[in-house]
């Protein structure tokens, strides 16, 4: 198998922001970040709010200039128009010119990419269809669209020119579980089509499902980088939450004696087992005791546990 080329190369990237009246105070948002993103992979930049994810993305796109360090996309500087022609960007909250309709906006951006009238018409119809925007919505001013519809238009504009690289800042932000599932499906499909995807998200468990490799960022510093399986093997099981009903008081007491945290309201009982092995034992026990299990959910994924451990080891508490 031939080695895949690096699409994004970041070396010792640092960004300081000045603050105060005389700009005498310095805040380091990104600290000597070095990473590479290979062709055809989904790469996740993970970290809590304020970790430096959006700043890193703005540096990749040259919306801000680095204090030091270098960024290369496709081997070129980010501001190179040949680079821009091959990348699609979705910001954290896709603010779009609200007086235009989705179709007008996409046609406008299509012109900036030099697409002919027929190409624009075909591409606009295709991407609107791909992101599930019907014609009735596409012809309404963007100020009349719901948040979910605006997010879809945001994806449509990023995809319009069929870019090789997608840079997505928190693509799961503000979406309900169904919306997240749909975005996951899109990302996997676009990877199958050969696109390279660089995304940032605070949702570690979400990234663990779809990313080939992740980088963990905390307070601007890279804590770890690698595939989720390398960083946190699936055998490292996390805590489990069980939602149950019709549990007798003595069953709850028995579960507490097994080390579970049990909280009950009028209809539901929430049981937190420290690890999945104890969780499945608790599920069996509830069933044997005549209770009904409604749902079993992992509370923390292996990667989330790894991330928390890495933050603790670095001497800082998670934000």
């Amino acid at each position: 198998m031939s080695a895949r080329s690096a699409i994004i190369v970041v070396e010792n990237l640092t960004k300081d922001y000045a603050s105060g009246w005389l700009a005498h105070r310095r805040h380091r948002a990104v600290d000597r970040l070095t990473l590479e993103v290979k062709e055809g992979e989904i790469f996740g930049l993970l970290g809590p709010n304020g970790a430096g994810k959006t700043t890193t993305i703005k540096l990749l796109l040259r919306l801000i200039r680095p204090t030091s360090g270098t960024v290369r996309l496709f081997g070129r500087l980010p501001e190179d128009r040949l680079v821009r022609a091959q990348l699609g960007f979705l910001p954290e909250h896709p603010y779009l010119p609200e007086a235009l309709t989705a179709r007008e906006l996409l046609d406008y951006f299509g012109r900036l990419f030099g697409l002919s009238r027929s190409d624009r018409s075909a591409r606009v119809a295709l991407v609107l269809h791909q992101v599930g925007i019907p014609a009735s919505v596409a012809d309404r001013p963007l100020r009349q669209l719901s948040r979910g519809e605006l997010a879809r238009v945001g994806f449509a504009q990023a995809l319009l020119h069929n870019p090789k690289l997608l840079i997505l800042d928190d693509p799961f932000g503000g979406l309900d579980p169904e919306g997240r599932r749909q975005v996951r499906d899109w990302l996997l499909r676009w990877r199958e089509e050969g696109k390279t995807i660089f995304l940032s998200t605070p949702l570690v468990a979400e990234a663990e499902i779809i990313c080939d490799r992740v980088a963990l960022l905390h307070r601007g510093r890279l804590l770890a980088c690698g595939s989720p399986a390398e960083l946190a093997p699936p055998t490292a099981q996390g805590a489990v939450e069980i939602l149950a009903r019709d549990l007798a008081p003595q069953t709850r007491e028995s579960l507490r004696a097994r080390g579970c945290d049990v909280r009950a309201d009028r209809t539901l009982v929430r049981i937190c087992a420290p690890a999945s092995a104890e969780g499945w034992e608790a599920v069996d026990f509830i069933r044997r005791s005549g209770g009904h299990v409604i749902a079993v959910n992992p509370l923390r994924s292996p990667l989330e546990r790894f991330f928390e451990d890495a933050v603790t080891a670095s001497g800082a508490s998670p934000a």
């Binding site: 796109l61 022609a85 960007f89 603010y95 779009l96």
Partner: peptide
């Protein structure tokens, strides 16, 4: 207004000077 509402981010990542 485009800058205040951050719509400019998307525009400036297109191949336009």
């Amino acid at each position: 207004r485009e800058i205040e509402r951050r719509a400019i981010y998307i525009l400036l990542t297109k191949p336009v000077r």
